[in-house]
Design a protein around this nucleic acid. Structure first.
Lengths: 232, 232
DNA sequence: ATTCTCGAAATAGTATCCAATTATGAGGAG
DNA sequence: CTCCTCATAATTGGATACTATTTCGAGAAT
C-alpha cells in the first residue's frame, strides 16, 4: 500500500519514455541552432553522446522526420532539414489561416487564468535576454491565447509549424527593436482579448503575423545579398 | 558504366526502406478499418505477421503516432486512435481554412495535366465500387486540385488531416446517393477551375467541405442514438 | 465479495551481429 | 595535372538475443 502510494507521487503522466526524452532533446538542439540546418545526425555518435542505444534514438529521429525538422535519405542518413524562403512563407500562411480562426473562437471563452498566463508569458519574455528560447516563449504565449478554443488537434499541428519556423526567426539578428515590437503586439492582442473585442483582436493578430513574416523574408533576402557579396 | 545504367533503371526515389513500407501498410490497414479504432498493436505479433523485426516496426509506429493515427502509452502499448465528434469537426475546420486557400492559389496556375489528372481521378472513383479506398481516391483528387499552388508543406499536412478523417468517412454507410453527390461536387469544382473562376470554384469547395462535414456529423449522432437504443 | 499476491505477458531498452549501400581515397590512364 | 577506377572503410538498415520494468489477470486469503 505504502509503496503503491510512493509510486503515485510521480504521476503516470510525467513518466516519459526514453524515446520521448531524446525527441525533446534533439528538437531543442535543432531549434536553438546547436544542430544547424544541413547537419547530419550520426546515429552511433549521437547514441554514445546521449548515452542511449540506437533503437530509441532512431525512433526519435522518425518522430522528428514526421514533424519535418529532419529529412532522411535511404542509406545516406538524416540531416537537419532546410527550408526555402517560399516554404518559410508558406508556414506563415498556415499560421495566418489557422491562428486567426482559433483566436476568434477562443476570445469569447478565455478565462481569467488564460489572461493571467498570457500576461505572465509576456512578462517572462520581456525579462529574459536569452534569445535562444524566444521561440519557445513566443509559442507558449500564442498557445495561451488559443487554448480556450478547445482545438487540441490544431494546436498540436500549429506547434509543429511554429517549431519549423522558429529556427529561422531565432537565426535572425532579432534586434532589440524587433523584440519590443513583438512584445507590444502581444500586449495589444491580449488587451483586445480581455475586452472580448473579437474583430480588433483578430485583426491585430493578422497584422502581427504578416509583419513577422515580412520582416523575416526581408531579412532573409538581405542575407542572400550579403551571401552574394561574400562570394564576389 | 553499363552496370551503372542498369542501377539507374530503378531510380533511387522508388527504393523505400522497410520502415516506410511498414508505415504505408499499417496506415492502409487503419484507413480501411482492418485495424479498427481502439485496437492494440502488438509488436511481436505484427512483426511476425509482417515478417520483419521490431526495429523498423517500432519506427513505423512512431511515425504513425506523429501523424495522429495511433497513440502510445508507456509500457501499455499502442492503440489505433479514436477521435471524438468535436475533434472530427475540427479536422474539417482545418480543411476549410487551408484547402480554400490552396485552391484559390492553384486555380490560376493549373495546367492541362492537372485538369486531366483530376478528371481521371473522378472517372476512376465513379467506376470503382470499392468503398474501402474511396478515401485514397478522394484525397488524390483534392491534391490534384491544389498541387499547382506549390504549397508542398501544406499538402503534406493536409494529407495527414484527410487520413485522420477518412477512417470515419469510410465508416459511414456512404450510400450511393452520397457518393454521387460527392462526385457531382468534384465535377463542379473542376469545371470552375477550368474556367479559372476562382470565386465560384472556392465557394463550391467551401460548400463541399461543409456538406461532407455536416453529413458525417449527422450520421455520427444518428449512430450514437442507435448505440443508446442498443443499450436500452 | 473484496483485496492481495504472484506469475505470465507485453513493452522498453541494450548489446551484438550481419548485409547493403555510400563515401573515401589511393593509384593508374589519359 | 585531371579524371576515372576500384578496393576499402564508414554508415545506415535490419535481425536476433537478452534483460529490466510494468501491466494485468487469475487465483488465494481474508
Amino acid at each position: 500500500m505504502i509503496s503503491n502510494m510512493a509510486k503515485e507521487i510521480v504521476p503516470k503522466s510525467v513518466r516519459t519514455s526514453l524515446t520521448e526524452q531524446i525527441t525533446t532533446e534533439l528538437r531543442r538542439r535543432i531549434l536553438n541552432g546547436q544542430l544547424a540546418e544541413g547537419t547530419t545526425l550520426r546515429q552511433e555518435r549521437l547514441a554514445t553522446e546521449l548515452g542511449v542505444s540506437r533503437i530509441p534514438l532512431r525512433e526519435a529521429i522518425r518522430h522528428l522526420e514526421a514533424e519535418g525538422l529532419v529529412v532522411s535519405e535511404l542509406h545516406k542518413g538524416t540531416i537537419v532539414s532546410c527550408l526555402s524562403p517560399d516554404e518559410l512563407e508558406e508556414l506563415f500562411g498556415i499560421r495566418m489561416r489557422l491562428e486567426t480562426w482559433l483566436f476568434e473562437a477562443a476570445i469569447p471563452r478565455m478565462s481569467q487564468a488564460d489572461f493571467d498566463q498570457a500576461e505572465a508569458l509576456i512578462e517572462e519574455a520581456s525579462k529574459t535576454g536569452d534569445v535562444s528560447n524566444w521561440g519557445e516563449l513566443n509559442w507558449r504565449f500564442h498557445e495561451a491565447l488559443y487554448r480556450a478554443s478547445g482545438s487540441r488537434i490544431t494546436l498540436k499541428l500549429l506547434r509543429s509549424v511554429h517549431d519549423n519556423a522558429a529556427r529561422y526567426v531565432n537565426l535572425q539578428l532579432m534586434v532589440m527593436q524587433d523584440v519590443e515590437r513583438e512584445l507590444s503586439d502581444h500586449h495589444a492582442m491580449l488587451a483586445y482579448a480581455r475586452l472580448r473585442d473579437v474583430e480588433r483582436g483578430v485583426d491585430m493578430l493578422r497584422r502581427h503575423i504578416a509583419r513577422v513574416s515580412r520582416n523575416l523574408m526581408a531579412s532573409l533576402s538581405r542575407g542572400a545579398e550579403e551571401g552574394l557579396k561574400h562570394i564576389a
